[in-house]
């Protein structure tokens, strides 16, 4: 039942990706009742997740990047 802070943070990280199970979440919340540092970490972590969920935050697919790289390398070779 009693968690170490390190474990609590690990569960909190997992929870950000919906990968923590019910029991872990219960134990985490019990830990958060008495641990101020972890409360702080949890709230920051949640905020970050919310920001990243923003639909305007985009990154390129790995495959697209490779394609881009290949095309560019060709161009680079031509250039020299």
């Amino acid at each position: 039942m009693k968690l170490k802070c390190r474990e609590a943070n690990h569960i909190c990280d997992k929870a950000q990706y919906k990968e923590a199970n019910l029991w872990e979440k219960i134990v985490l919340n019990i830990h958060l009742i008495y641990c101020r540092a972890c409360r702080k970490y949890s709230s920051k972590n949640g905020k970050l997740t919310k920001l990243m969920k923003n639909p305007k935050v985009e990154t390129m697919e790995a495959s697209a990047k490779e394609q881009l790289n290949a095309a560019f390398q060709k161009e680079l070779a031509n250039h020299k």
Binding site: K56, V57, E58, T59, M60, A64, K65, Q67, L68, N69, F72
Partner: peptide, 25 residues
């Protein structure tokens, strides 16, 4: 180094302006 360093940044910049992944790429 361009692709490695800047492609995500430029892509992000573009996607907010054209709203289409392929065009942005």
């Amino acid at each position: 180094q361009w692709i490695k360093l800047y492609s995500d940044y430029l892509f992000n910049y573009t996607i907010t302006r054209v709203n289409d992944r392929e065009i942005a790429q």
